[in-house]
Design a protein around this nucleic acid. Structure first.
Lengths: 237, 237
DNA sequence: ATTGTCCTATTGGCTAGGCCACTGAGCCAG
DNA sequence: CTGGCTCAGTGGCCTAGCCAATAGGACAAT
């Protein structure tokens, strides 16, 4: 891994596919013109011409918007705006671009993971416990070898999430996975942090093994708080 | 609304677009053949031929899978499977199709909304409180008029979520919005339920107004539990 | 040996143009 | 007023083709 040191590198200049631009423009256009749920978009042929792309490309853009839930394409009738427009796209962007999103991420992790820990304490199987131990061992080895234990951290939380046996919670954790990953990197970059983090994980694991949901929840809460402290120190405004 | 009574009607036989089927098949194929993150899919031309569709359609399918985060399409190189495959698609389906998803929804609501309530108690503005009161009044009027207070319930939870001033949590709530809506309908369909629900809302609102996060959290927890009881009674297996 | 340059096969990106299928609205007969 | 018909509008999908990016090998320069 070469990105482990120094400056974080220009972020790999992203290559936009045409359909993405088109989808963005359409989405923006919907917002700007104040289109409400149920309003119709112009026909594909016209829209394609206006945007200067082929119908095939436009079609891809519509697929993308459809998957995200912004529009609904109805064969023979037209393309209509759905209710979810405002909630979906905008907010994701807002979160991505806003600098002080860290507290929000911490809050959300706290909400989800304390619950997950509590559930895990009650539902964990032997297999779950083994996986958690593996992650712990992996992290320990990594840290002793001078690493930051990033992957071990990820594995641990993944294992705990799996142990909660809740597909929905797992999905939501996955949803915010990318955001969490960033905070993880920041947190574990602090000197001494990996060890503290490892200790926190051990406490969580113990509580889960003991089958004590309250303790597991509390331990997880403390752990998330610790991460938060670190992040806030560096990022305070 | 005509779907409020009687048998639930044949569920409107959905019309699949070709790209959806293709996306599904590809996704399944990835799973069946045990493809891991980083593995390459066959080239588009070949894949299209094998699946018996045009390249344009296949391309749409890939866009859909890309938006969902299952694959990454790299110009000039190929299409590769991303790490998120397992978590994403399967789980959504599993949740949608699994009958006993109610407990999971309750758990998730509990995790998110207790936190939301606590945050709301600390952060609510006068405007937030007014909106919460509006929702309360709306629900009360609806119930007195013989309604079930479904929309009021929705508004109330929306207002509380807004009062938490956390975009991320709001987004996750939105994410599970559809699922929650179903449970809401079931719950409020019980005789006497609307009144109880209204009382629960009042308790939550009071705690938020008082600025007491613990009380707000506890009240919300109690409320969610109540909903859960109802749901489980009808749906127990 | 190593490094940098160029070439080329492979692969995705996008377009053009066309036919088919579905939807909704208006018309007409019963 | 109802049911069936027609037709214009619109999306669904296809074929055929050229353009553009990438990876990897050959080969020259160091």
């Amino acid at each position: 891994m070469s990105d482990a040191s120094g400056s974080p590198f220009p972020p790999r200049l992203l290559r936009t596919r045409l359909y993405e631009q088109v989808a963005g423009q359409i989405s923006a256009w919907i917002g700007d013109n104040g289109l409400r749920a149920g309003d119709k978009l112009p026909p594909e042929r016209e829209l394609a011409q206006r945007l200067g792309v082929s119908r095939a490309t436009l079609s891809q853009a519509l697929v993308a918007l459809e998957v995200v839930g912004v529009v609904e394409v109805r064969h023979g009738d037209g393309t209509v705006v759905t209710a979810r427009h405002q909630t979906s796209t905008r907010i994701v962007e807002a979160i991505r671009n806003h600098a002080d999103r860290l507290p929000e991420i911490i809050e959300t992790r706290d909400a989800l993971e304390t619950k997950i820990a509590a559930l895990a304490a009650v539902r964990r199987t032997e297999e779950d416990l083994a996986r958690i131990d593996d992650a712990l061992a992996f992290m320990e080895a990594d840290i002793e070898a001078g690493g930051r234990g990033v992957e071990g951290d990820e594995r641990f939380h993944g294992a705990v999430t799996a142990a909660s046996h809740s597909l929905l919670l797992a999905r939501l954790m996955d949803e915010i996975g990318d955001l969490v990953k960033e905070t993880r990197l920041e947190s574990l970059g602090q000197p001494g942090r990996p060890q503290d983090s490892l200790a926190g994980h051990r406490a969580i694991a113990e509580a889960i093994r003991a089958g004590d949901p309250r303790a597991a929840s509390a331990a997880m809460h403390a752990h998330v708080e610790m991460v938060s402290d670190v992040a806030l120190l560096r990022d305070e405004e």
